[in-house]
Simulated assay, not measured.
Amino acid sequence: MNLHTPAQQIPRPPCAAPDAADPFAATGEPLRWGVVATGRIASNVTEDLAGLEDSVLQAVSSRSQDSARAFAEKFGFSTSYYDDDGVTGYQRLFNDPEVDVVYIATPHAQHHEVARAALESGKHVLCEKAFTVNAREAAELIDLARANNLFLMEALWSRFLPSVNRAWEIIHSGELGEIQWVQADLGFPSDHGSTHRLWDPAAGGGALLDLTVYPLTWALGALGFPAAVTAAGALNDDNIDTQNALTLSYEGGAHAQLTSSLVSSGPGQATVSGSAGWLRTGSVLHNPRELTIHPHQGEQRVETFEQAGRGYVYELRETTRCIQQGLTESPTMPWADTLNTMRLLDGVRNQLGLRYANDA
Rank of each mutant, 00 (worst) to 15 (best):
M1E: 08
M1L: 10
H4Q: 15
Q8L: 07
C15K: 11
D22Q: 11
P23F: 10
P23R: 09
F24L: 13
A26I: 11
W33A: 05
G34P: 12
G39F: 07
I41E: 14
E47V: 08
L49E: 12
L52Q: 12
L52M: 15
A59G: 15
S61C: 04
S64M: 04
R69M: 05
E73P: 01
F75S: 01
D83Q: 04
Y90P: 02
F94Q: 01
V101H: 08
V102G: 05
A105P: 01
T106I: 03
H108V: 11
H112I: 03
E113D: 14
E120C: 08
E120N: 08
S121I: 04
S121N: 15
V125D: 07
E128W: 01
F131V: 01
L150S: 05
A155V: 02
A155C: 10
W157F: 14
S163V: 08
N165S: 08
R166D: 04
W168R: 13
I171L: 14
S173W: 13
L186Q: 14
F188T: 11
D191E: 14
L208W: 04
Y214S: 03
L220N: 06
G221L: 05
L223K: 00
A228V: 02
T230W: 00
A231I: 02
A232E: 14
G233V: 06
G233Q: 06
D237Y: 00
I240P: 08
Q243W: 15
G253M: 09
G253Y: 11
A256N: 10
A256P: 12
Q257R: 13
L258Q: 03
T259N: 11
T259D: 09
S260E: 12
V263S: 12
S264I: 00
S265M: 04
G268A: 07
R280H: 00
T281S: 13
R289F: 04
Q297W: 00
G298W: 00
E299Y: 00
T304P: 02
A308S: 15
E318M: 13
E318C: 10
I323N: 03
I323A: 05
V348G: 10
Y356L: 12
A357W: 02
D359Q: 05
